[in-house]
Design a binder for these strands. Sequence first.
DNA 1: CACTCTACCTGTGCGC
DNA 2: TGCGCACAGGTAGAGT
Length: 270
Amino acid sequence: MPELPEVESVVRTLRNGTPSLIGARIRSVDPVWPGVCAHRPDDLCLEQLVGCRFDSIARRGKYLIFSLSCADSRAHFLVIHLRMTGRLFLVPDRDALQRHTRLVLYLAGGHALRFDDPRKFGRVWLTDDPGTLTGRMGPDALTVSPDEFAGRLAGYRRQVKPLLLDQSFVAGLGNIYADESLYRAGIHPRANSADLLPEDVRRLHAAVTSVLGEAVAAGGANIDGVFKAGSFVINVYGREGAPCRICGTPVSKIRLGQRGTHFCGQCQPL
DNA sequence: CACTCTACCTGTGCGC
DNA sequence: TGCGCACAGGTAGAGT
């Protein structure tokens, strides 16, 4: 399940890996599963990608934003959201499509950018204005300052876990890192944001940015071998009943805002 | 505004 | 063994 650290890892691999996607020109497009393209009314068609060149790659929350140079010399952006199970990689263009391949962009030079996604939740957009997708998002959760975090939080009166998941509050946290951040901060997921003390808010901000920063540095998470890519150690997510690594109390699991929520009742009192 | 529910999907893992 | 079903969750949108 790609959240901010996993998406950042994809960005860095595509940008700095060998080969790099930067500078590559799109030779042809194979929309293996056409539903992968969200295609809102003002969006462009994927066929218009042919001939475009990748100039740069950025991340905004969990969105990947590819800046393109195209023949019509207008600014085009390919935007991709991996959602739950999407994966993106550069492969030799002779590589066989996989069962869950949804889109292939064949590049000049013998490689292809392939998008695989078993659950078909992931989407791509081709647009002149990525702000139509990311405009309402809050600041990036990896780099938000303590003051901005506290200032924005003060505008809400909500359960803190669903608030952390709200991309218009801060962008990039998903279910796993929201639980991990609250655990590190020692804050109960059901706590109301308006009841947090200034020191709680400061600790929560530090937890969010440090958890994400460490996960980025580790190349993502490692959940009992489910995520093989990274080595970030998970403390509560998916560990219901297992002993808290701090106090030994069995990790609790509840449902909060329709989401599985994991925490230590001892270390995160309400 | 805060919240709840539903829809979108399919692989996994459980109970029977 | 095989069947059925709950479950996982990011986001949008509708409803309370």
